[in-house]
Design a protein around this nucleic acid. Structure first.
Length: 280
DNA sequence: ATTCAGGTGCGAG
DNA sequence: CTCGCACCTGAA
């Protein structure tokens, strides 16, 4: 067992349950998942995060980065608090870090997320891993490689509840596997250019591209606009007036600059939590 | 039974 | 370029 040191206001629970990644099973302060090819368990304690099941210090460092523990959250939230809307929201969303996940898994995850709901996205990704990934433990599988999904049959893919997205996922895998798309390329260029590269992929539109840029490539300027964020921005910044996705992105980048991604996470989390309350 | 989900790709105007 | 529409499928 090893321990990663953290500083306030970091929250493992909020970071892993705010919809950036879909394969962690979180229960209170404990999370089970797969990292670096191993099933691991994380538990947030007073001054740190206990890690069970991880290999050496190299993997430890990678996990530190993956979980966003290198981000100065306190300072970031203090800056965001200058915004009157976020200042009111932050008390109930504080502690969310942006995770730095594997681009391939992130890409597939958000292509699957299109016009879908979160429980089914999780179910689909789990089935994809069980069907095409390598077994790593009793109930743990690796995320399937581009090569493996490139060779998958559409029938098998559909059995993972991919529905009409099955051809997109396979085409995406073939782009990566065949070398037509280099997963390292977006990391080497500016945000706008990286976005254009991603938009060329099948099943990847503006929203998915921004999610991948934010959650895998660490581009804080990205501001993914989904129905929840659109609703939140319209309601809280434009008195309920309807705005185009373009306008909302322009507004967010102008207002939050390289912290737009954090702003998005807080707005998204708050709006969803509020939406669930209203329904019940 | 109907409706709703973290949008995207498509054809039309 | 913007706009409207269809879309797998399970869960409420």
């Amino acid at each position: 067992m090893s321990e990663l040191s953290i500083s306030p206001p970091y929250s493992l629970f909020r970071t892993l349950t705010c919809g950036q990644a879909f394969r962690w099973r979180v229960d209170g302060d404990t999370a089970h998942g797969v990292f670096a090819g191993r099933p691991i368990t994380l538990r947030q304690r007073d001054g740190g995060i206990e890690v069970l099941g991880l290999g050496g210090s190299r993997e430890r460092d990678r996990l530190f980065s993956y979980l966003g523990l290198d981000q100065p959250l306190s300072a970031i939230e203090q800056t965001l608090g200058a915004d009157r809307v976020l200042r009111r929201i932050l008390p109930s969303t504080t502690g969310i870090a942006l995770i730095r996940q594997d681009p391939w898994e992130c890409l597939v995850s958000f292509v699957v997320s299109a016009f879908n709901n979160i429980p089914k996205i999780e179910l689909t990704l789990d089935r994809l891993c069980r069907t095409f990934g390598d077994r790593l433990g009793e109930t743990a599988w690796s995320f399937p490689s581009p090569d493996r999904l490139a060779r998958a049959g559409l029938f098998e893919l559909r059995r993972c509840l991919l529905g009409y997205r099955a051809p997109y996922v396979r085409a995406l895998a073939r782009c990566v596997d065949g070398g037509r798309f280099d997963l390292a390329a977006p990391a080497a260029v500016a945000y706008e250019e990286a976005r254009v590269l991603l938009l060329d992929l099948p099943g990847v539109g503006e929203k998915v591209a921004d999610c991948v840029l934010l959650f895998a490539y660490g581009r804080g300027e990205a501001f993914p606009v989904d129905v929840w964020v659109k609703r939140a921005v319209e309601r809280r910044y434009f008195r309920g007036a309807s705005k185009s996705v373009r306008d909302i992105q322009a507004f967010a980048r102008g207002r939050f600059s390289t912290l737009a991604g954090y702003a998005q996470q807080h707005l998204y989390s708050y709006e969803r939590a509020r939406g669930r309350e209203v329904r019940s």
